[in-house]
Design a protein around this nucleic acid. Sequence first.
DNA 1: GCGGGATGGTTGACGCGTCATCGAATGTCG
DNA 2: CGACATTCGATGACGCGTCAACCATCCCGC
Lengths: 154, 154
Amino acid sequence: MATTEDGSFPGSEESFRSPAQAAVVGLFRMSDRARRTLAEALRPRDLTLQQFNVLRILRGAGDGGLPTLTIADRMVEQTPGVTRLLDRLQKQGWIERRRDPGDRRRVVACITLEGRQVLEAVDEPFARAEEDIFRDWAEEDVRALARLLHNGPP
Amino acid sequence: MATTEDGSFPGSEESFRSPAQAAVVGLFRMSDRARRTLAEALRPRDLTLQQFNVLRILRGAGDGGLPTLTIADRMVEQTPGVTRLLDRLQKQGWIERRRDPGDRRRVVACITLEGRQVLEAVDEPFARAEEDIFRDWAEEDVRALARLLHNGPP
DNA sequence: GCGGGATGGTTGACGCGTCATCGAATGTCG
DNA sequence: CGACATTCGATGACGCGTCAACCATCCCGC
């Protein structure tokens, strides 16, 4: 990539002080675009992106369910957010919660039948939205992006 | 990149159904990491990332200031968020707002001296944080990432 | 000049993310 | 056994993002 005379790095129109800055700006813009596209696919069912994530995690966990903190770990999120996320999912009837009899501090969440159903209903639109994000990209570039993003250390 | 036998795409540990899915997951994870790193650099001054963004935009706009919707355009955000963001900045004394006499629907926001000062105080820690995000990356990869992200159509 | 649409912005309501704080159950160590 | 620390999770408070509804101002055509 060429560097302009003043040492800045050209994007489409903007210019940046460093490759890192250019990457960060692009990262935020792109992930914002992705977030909106995916959210739109879930909206007809009144699911948010985070709710969808939790439901998928719980579906993957099977009938045993998962304690709150384990869910929080699998998302990158802090606990309080997860507690309230689960509150809302429970209010919708998509999950159930019960105390773990073996360790009564734990609250185990478990997806319900209704939860599975709403999940099934959005699974395919969601997958389509995922592909749609990169509709105008060369497949080779999507692979390159994924490879780059999964390289860096934790 | 190799493809596994079942057609999935390996990341470090996970596997994905498609390059798009791998890219999206990586995108979210990476941009989340970046967000936290940058936010941490602003925290000592009690600035949030969005507040910092608006202040930088206003500093760039000079003494004339900018109307609310113009600010909203430069961020990717909806108007209502910006209105309340400006409320908070004003409460901190970092911006001033006045009605445009030429078009009294418009509210023009303008950075104050205090705003400039807090911005100066975080400018350099912020830039360091930006570089820090890619501390463990090869510079070539950072450039490649930036190039990919600034390629795709709007 | 005036009536109706367009434009600029605010407000209400709700979900999410995060910090700090807290209560309850468990574990540990004397 | 009993005090203390630790772990799991909930709650309060605040900032952000978004939708829907609203008010004020401007603009345009008649």
